[in-house]
């Protein structure tokens, strides 16, 4: 854990803010003057993790830059629920072009700013997992290898949600989507497919790669702010539960994000120039079942017959993450 984690003060730095913490130790979100880059009246589903994640990220970026952020956005839920004519929920300069090009649009903005000598203004490009790992990966990889001064944020809800929950390269094994239905011998998304985008990003040896979830705000904000300290290409991959696509209770959004980390299913770490430099330790390890059983996209693992083979395999992959990133132990 790289940010100064405050323990012992009631909720320490686990909660959003807290009157017992010194102001710099509180999150940007806890402030009454936070930007609310994504403001009231957006049309995301109840309990949308992506809406939450996007506000977290952009407010933190605004905070880090003295309110000098331009955002480029890929097509997807985040774009659709924020900008249906005639209303926009954004309060930062924001541009949506198409589905697969957010990274390149970001590169263009950054280039323009450099040309104008306005390098104090920073660029955030953002997309869903589909817009990142699938259709957007070409532009993204280009942005990375050119080391353009763009922070790219992937809001990973693990499927193409905006088009009605179809499989993406980020959909986890066994998960039901509209194109990987829970039927047949191996219900849900097949095993052995999909991409680990953070590690792909690391392979570009860009200055900074990090993962985060909407459950740990201090960590998330720290990573955004840290990303803003670097020049060049940066990538943050944020797990954002989607009640609609995951078949979860809207109230469980943060809980699921937390469980994803605490099970080891979603490793939370930071890497600089391709090397992992910090991992968020699991606070109290829980079996993957605790996570899976809250989501209807995994319902077929429990009913009509319990699929211990699949649950075990998911547990194995979580355990592999734990080994690979050293997720257990003292923070």
């Amino acid at each position: 854990m790289a940010y100064r984690q405050v323990k012992f003060y009631q909720t320490g730095s686990f909660a959003v803010g807290g009157r017992l913490l010194d102001t710099p130790e509180r999150t940007v979100q806890s402030g009454m003057s936070r930007t609310n880059a994504l403001t009231l009246g957006h049309r995301a589903c109840q309990g949308c993790g992506e809406a939450l994640g996007a506000r977290y990220v952009l407010d933190a970026a605004m905070h880090a830059t003295g309110n000098k952020v331009i955002a480029a956005n890929a097509t997807g839920c985040l774009e659709v629920f924020t900008t249906p004519y005639p209303e926009t929920s954004w309060q930062v300069p924001w541009l949506h072009s198409v589905f697969g090009n957010a990274a390149a649009v970001g590169s263009g903005i950054a280039a323009a700013l450099r040309a104008k000598g306005q390098t104090d203004i920073r660029v955030v490009a953002q997309a869903g997992d589909g817009g990142t790992v699938d259709i957007g990966i070409g532009c993204l990889s280009g942005m990375f290898e050119r080391n353009d001064d763009v922070l790219f944020v992937c809001y990973d809800n693990e499927a193409y949600m905006n088009t009605g929950v179809q499989r993406s390269g980020s959909t986890p094994p066994a998960a039901r989507t509209a194109t990987t239905e829970a039927v047949g011998e191996e219900p849900g998304n097949p095993w052995g497919q999909g991409k680990d985008m953070p590690r792909i990003a690391m392979a570009h040896e860009i200055p900074y790669v990090a993962t985060a979830t909407v459950a740990e705000l201090h960590d998330l904000e720290y990573k955004v702010e840290k990303a803003m300290e670097y020049r060049g290409a940066r990538y943050i991959h944020i797990l954002v539960p989607c009640p609609l696509g995951w078949g979860s209770e809207p109230a469980d959004t943060i809980r699921l994000a937390r469980l994803a980390k605490e099970t080891g299913i979603f490793p939370v770490f930071e890497a600089e120039k391709g090397e992992v430099v910090a991992t968020s330790k699991i606070r109290s390890k829980v079996p993957v079942e605790d996570y899976l059983s809250l989501q209807r996209r995994y319902a077929h693992l429990f009913k009509p017959a319990r699929r211990d083979d699949v649950i075990d395999a998911i547990q194995d992959s979580a355990d592999r993450n734990i080994r690979r990133f050293g997720l257990l132990g003292e923070a």
Binding site: V16, Q29, N36, L40
Partner: peptide
Amino acid sequence: ARRCLSCGNCFECDNCYGVCPDNA
């Protein structure tokens, strides 16, 4: 004193303020 969980009484941790996806 700071170990107290403040059971059932808001202690102004800002969580609700922070976690609302709708800024409500």
